[in-house]
């Protein structure tokens, strides 16, 4: 079992809906985005194109983050999900520096989205979910996945640009897409073996 995601760059419209969906599902504080969609102009007029590039934790099979993690807080689960045990994280942030994909943030404190105002009822309800002073990143919505649901960013994406499944199962949609469309991994030259594949780029 190795969970993975395929991102179809032809389908992605760069709406950043996934970015906010993930934020609200996980209650992350300001500045902490577990996923985001980079938008870049390429080419010269009039042969210009946008490159939409959804980024999240790549759930590397050979993760830099866990290689450098001095406490073992970051580890790879049996299902391929790279997680952070917040109770074991000392907040050294080496994983943040080491992750080649910029997938990690450091949650210094849980602040409100409305500076100078009292925390909102929603924020109060979520703040308890966060251990401040620890690293944070996408966990492939491990809770949901354990309950048989798809990650939030997958479900919310109107364009169906994100497809989730088991890369070890050759019959799964993700495996087939990777095979058919020659899925690419970001920075594959680093040998980190991401479980996130990009197709139709």
């Amino acid at each position: 079992m190795r969970y993975g995601m395929v991102i179809d760059l032809q389908r992605c419209v760069g709406c950043n809906s996934c970015t906010i969906a993930c934020k609200q599902a996980n209650g992350t504080p300001p500045g902490v985005l577990r996923t985001r969609v980079l938008i870049k102009e390429t080419g010269t007029y009039p042969n210009t194109r946008y490159q939409y590039l959804p980024i999240l934790c790549m759930h590397c099979q050979v993760p830099e983050c866990s290689r450098v993690c001095p406490t073992g807080a970051t580890k790879v689960l049996e299902n391929g999900i790279v997680t952070i045990d917040k109770d074991a994280c000392i907040g050294c942030q080496f994983c943040v520096m080491a992750c080649p994909y910029g997938a990690r943030s450091f949650v210094e404190e849980y602040t409100s989205y409305f500076p100078g105002q009292e925390m909102t009822a929603y924020e109060k309800s979520q703040s308890g979910r966060f251990q401040t002073g620890t690293a944070d990143k996408c966990d492939f919505c491990a809770d949901r996945v354990a309950a048989g649901e798809l990650p939030v960013c997958v479900v919310t994406c109107g364009a169906h640009a994100r497809i989730f499944g088991d890369l070890d199962d050759p019959e799964s949609e993700v495996s087939k897409l990777v095979a058919q469309h020659h899925g690419k991994q970001l920075l594959s030259e680093l040998g980190s073996k991401p479980s996130v594949f990009y197709i139709n780029g």
Binding site: S17, Q24, A25, G27, V155, T156, G158
Partner: peptide, 24 residues
Amino acid sequence: VAVRVQGNPECPSNLGALCSRGNA
């Protein structure tokens, strides 16, 4: 307190999807 808004997967028009505004 409303703690999460998601698309209704059974709604024929959006089948669970939401745009960034809906998610916000």
